[in-house]
Structure formats: C-alpha cells, structure tokens
Measured scan of single mutants.
Amino acid sequence: TTLTVNTQTYTFTSEEEAREFARRYGAKTIRKTNGTWEVHG
C-alpha cells in the first residue's frame, strides 16, 4: 500500500507525533508554524 501526500498538510501539536508520522509515511518536510508542527508530503 502506498500513501501519496503531494499537496496535503498534516498538523500536529507535538514534534514527536509529527516526526513519527513523517517517518511512517515518508513525508519530506517537517515545519513548526505558530506553535504547531506541519508535515508536508
């Protein structure tokens, strides 16, 4: 199964959650914005 996250942004309140998600789905960018963490595919 392949998950494609081209134009979607996922927002997390903790860096740990964001990094775990990025690691699991191979997202390329993690960015902190206004106190939340954004993961970009």
Rank of each mutant, 00 (worst) to 15 (best):
T2F: 06
R24M: 09
E15S: 02
G35K: 03
Q8K: 10
R23S: 09
E16H: 09
F21E: 01
T29S: 10
I30Y: 06
A22D: 01
F12K: 00
R23D: 11
T36I: 15
H40K: 11
N34S: 05
E16P: 04
R31I: 14
A27L: 15
Y10L: 05
G35T: 04
T1M: 11
Y10W: 14
I30S: 03
R24D: 04
E38Q: 07
T7Q: 11
E17Y: 02
K28Y: 11
L3A: 14
G41S: 14
T9R: 09
T1E: 12
G26T: 02
Q8P: 10
T2N: 14
T36C: 10
A22P: 00
E20G: 02
E20A: 09
T9Y: 13
T33C: 13
V39I: 04
T9E: 05
R19S: 05
S14H: 04
R24L: 11
G41I: 15
T7L: 12
V39K: 00
W37G: 00
I30M: 04
A27D: 04
E38D: 02
T4V: 12
T9F: 12
T33G: 10
T33K: 12
T2M: 11
R31Y: 12
T2W: 08
Y25Q: 06
T33H: 12
I30F: 05
T36V: 15
R23C: 14
T11I: 14
T1L: 10
G41A: 14
V39T: 02
T9N: 07
T9K: 09
Y10A: 05
A18R: 00
G41R: 07
L3H: 15
N34E: 06
A27H: 15
Y10F: 10
G35P: 00
W37T: 01
G26Y: 03
V5A: 12
R31D: 04
T33Y: 08
R23M: 08
N34W: 01
W37K: 00
A22M: 06
T36G: 14
T2K: 10
N34I: 02
E17Q: 07
G41F: 15
T33M: 10
K32T: 09
E38L: 07
V39F: 01
V5Y: 08
T36R: 10
V39G: 01
H40I: 15
L3N: 14
E15P: 02
R24Y: 05
K32R: 07
H40R: 10
T1R: 01
K32D: 03
T13L: 13
R19A: 06
E38G: 02
E20N: 06
V39Y: 01
G35N: 07
R19I: 10
K32P: 04
T1Q: 12
E17A: 09
E15L: 10
F12V: 01
R31S: 09
G41K: 11
H40G: 07
T9D: 03
T7D: 08
Y10P: 04
E16M: 09
L3Q: 14
T7P: 10
T29G: 05
H40P: 04
V5C: 12
T29V: 15
E20V: 04
E16T: 08
T2D: 12
K32Q: 11
K32F: 15
V5W: 09
W37F: 04
V5N: 13
H40F: 13
E38Y: 06
A27S: 07
T13Y: 14
R24C: 09
K28R: 06
R31G: 04
A27Y: 15
T13Q: 10
E20F: 03
T13H: 11
A22E: 03
E17K: 05
V39M: 01
T4P: 14
H40S: 13
T7A: 09
H40V: 15
R24N: 05
T11E: 05
R24T: 07
R31T: 11
S14G: 02
R23T: 07
Y25A: 08
E16K: 11
I30A: 02
E16W: 10
S14V: 04
E17T: 04
A27K: 06
G26H: 07
T7I: 12
A18I: 00
Y10E: 02
G26W: 03
E16R: 08
A27P: 02
E38V: 13
T11K: 08
N6D: 12
T7H: 11
E15R: 04
G41W: 15
A27N: 05
R24H: 07
T29I: 15
K32L: 14
N34R: 02
Q8H: 12
T2Y: 06
R23L: 09
G35V: 02
W37R: 00
S14K: 04
K28E: 13
R19M: 11
W37D: 00
T4G: 12
T9I: 15
E16D: 09
R24F: 05
E16S: 09
E16V: 08
T13F: 12
F21Y: 07
T13K: 08
E16N: 07
R19P: 00
T11S: 09
E17I: 03
T4Y: 08
R24I: 11
T11G: 03
E38H: 05
T1A: 11
T2L: 10
T2S: 14
N34A: 05
R19G: 03
T29H: 11
E20S: 06
T4A: 14
Q8N: 11
R24Q: 10
R24A: 07
E17L: 06
A22Q: 02
T36Y: 13
G41V: 15
N34L: 03
N34H: 04
A27W: 15
A27Q: 07
S14Q: 03
G35H: 04
T29F: 14
I30D: 02
W37L: 01
T4F: 06
F12D: 00
T29E: 12
L3P: 14
E15Y: 15
A18C: 02
T29L: 15
V5M: 11
E17R: 04
A22R: 01
T36K: 11
K32H: 12
